[in-house]
Design a protein around this nucleic acid. Structure first.
Length: 473
RNA sequence: GCGCCCAUCGUCUAGCGGUCCAGGACGUUGCCCUUUCACGGCAAAAACAGGGGUUCGAGUCCCCUUGGGCGCGCCA
């Protein structure tokens, strides 16, 4: 089992599961599954000020909704602080790290001066070779890594390729703060090592961190995991992903009526490709996913394509499954007072009957739900302006005739109602639309809806006739 | 400022030196289907950032310019 692939997703719980984080989790999950390995979950909660339990819950909820399960127990980084400290001290004892007594003010001055002189703002190593006996009184030191000052640090990144940094550009980073708590750099390295992580797949905002982390690995004589830094997702304007451009939590996507499988499919194709293939089932994704085809340039988030993809998924789903998805999403969708707040058995039955006509016309669950409004409307229906217009424009007279003829029908099947309406239109030398539109207006209150004979069928004889009667002139 | 990364249609991308007058998808436009709206079908417009090299041959390799992004904390 020594060569089993182990990836990890390591969010910091300072907010919801961001869409970019969702994609990172997806890539880690797919890579692990593809390789028959595991994906571990580590919560990076060492920032006690900003980490919250609510955020942890939101992240777990988001992952679950996306269908990305993790293996083993959730690791909480903060609880491992003792282990981190131990390693820092080990490094100190080995002469690979040292105490630094520079004060924050001193460091600020150092950086300000460096900037002013046009030099990079780095720690100058002033305590690197000094004995702790020279320490000024009353100062709690930090522990810094004694990093190599010459040569270079080279990362063979699976996505970015070979990336090299001159060590003189990397300063001696802090491992342990003056209050004895570990820094992120130390904690990440120690945790990934202890967790047996073999592949680190994360956003490329961590690329420079990778170099510094490699220095820690080297000081510890630990094997550096395989790294893959994936490009960040950008907004439609190419700049940082803003709220307006999709920088939302995955819960927001649920609220907008997207199916998790569609979001997953959209996300996997953002920065990764497999020839010309656009649609992937879960199995296909796992089978095809690889790091080699992850692109190096950042992708822009495009709602239009997501929406299209979601529409595809909705249409190919079985009606019962789509109904189940709608029922599950219902409480998360923006509320509307003209619709039931919960879907009881009766409501679900209506929805299922109307589903074939409804799902062709919706790209999201919100649209699906809104398209179903007529099913739950109370008589007499509130007509929108255009529906009103169709009825005013001679429609009511047709309704009166149709009411009589339809009332006489024994068989209320779509084919039966259709022949009644068609015959009438033919007799009057009208186009079918001239009769169908007033009917639609009376039955749904709108001028667009599923096929009118299906609407008649779904609504049922009693309700249909009553609605027609309400509007007949 | 310094370091690093990126650059094919509006967007996501295929392309790993010749098979590319650059392919697919979304979006857009037109036509068809049609009781509305959709769906579906067909078609069209639409790109190798610019400049130098290397090579018999470059979207594909190298350099520069330009334009984006990320990083440079006792945050993660």
């Amino acid at each position: 089992m020594a060569d089993e692939v182990i990836t990890r997703f390591a969010p910091s719980p300072t907010g919801f599961l961001h869409i970019g984080g969702g994609r990172t989790a997806l890539f880690n999950w797919l890579f692990a599954r593809h390789s028959g390995g595991k994906m571990l979950l580590r919560i990076e909660d060492t920032d006690r000020e900003r980490s919250t339990d609510a955020a942890i819950a939101a992240i777990l909820d988001g992952l679950a909704w996306l269908g990305l399960g993790w293996d083993g127990e959730v690791i909480h980084q903060f609880r491992r602080a003792g282990r981190h400290r131990e390693i820092a001290e080990q490094l100190l004892a080995a002469g690979k790290a040292y105490y630094c007594y520079a004060t924050p003010e001193e460091l600020d001055d150092m950086r300000a001066k460096a900037r002013a002189e046009g030099r990079p703002p780095r720690y100058d190593g002033r305590w690197r070779e000094r004995a702790p006996s020279e320490a000024p009184p009353g100062i709690q030191p930090v522990i810094r890594l004694k990093a190599a000052q010459s040569g270079e640090t080279v990362l063979d990144d699976k996505v970015q390729g070979c990336v090299a940094w001159a060590n003189e550009n990397l300063d001696d980073l802090v491992l342990l703060r003056s209050d004895g708590t570990p820094t992120y750099m130390l904690a990440v390295v120690v945790d990934d090592h202890d967790m047996g992580v073999t592949h680190i797949i994360r956003g490329d905002d961590h690329l420079t961190n990778a170099a510094r982390q490699m220095q820690i690995y080297q000081a510890l004589d630990w094997q550096v995991p395989v790294m893959a830094h994936i490009p960040l997702i950008h907004g439609t304007d190419g700049a940082k992903l803003s709220k307006r451009h999709g920088a939302l939590g995955v819960d927001a996507y649920r609220a907008m009526g997207y199916l998790p499988e569609a979001l997953r499919n959209y996300l996997v194709r953002l920065g990764w490709s497999h020839g010309d293939q656009e649609f992937f089932s879960m199995e296909e994704m796992i089978e095809a996913f690889d790091l080699a085809h992850v692109g190096r340039s950042p992708a822009r988030f495009d709602f239009a394509k997501l929406e299209n993809m979601n529409g595809h998924y909705m249409r190919q789903m079985h009606n019962a499954d789509l109904l189940a998805a709608l029922v599950a999403a219902w409480p998360h969708l923006p509320p509307r007072d003209d619709l039931p707040s919960r879907l009881d058995a009766e409501a679900q039955k209506k929805l299922l009957a109307a589903m074939p006509g409804l799902k062709e016309r919706a790209k999201t669950l919100v649209e699906l739900r809104d398209g179903a409004t007529f099913l739950f409307a109370k008589r007499p229906l509130a007509l929108d302006a255009q529906a009103e217009g169709v009825l005013e424009d001679g429609g009511r007279a047709h309704l009166a005739v149709l009411l009589a003829r339809l009332s006489a029908l024994e068989d209320w099947s779509p084919s039966a109602t259709e022949s009644v309406v068609r015959d009438y239109a033919e007799e009057m030398n009208l186009k079918l639309g001239q009769v169908a539109q007033p009917l639609r207006a009376a039955l749904t209150g709108r001028i667009t809806s599923p096929g009118i004979f299906d609407v008649l069928d779904v609504l049922g004889r009693g309700e249909s006739l009553a609605r027609i009667k309400d509007q007949a002139g």
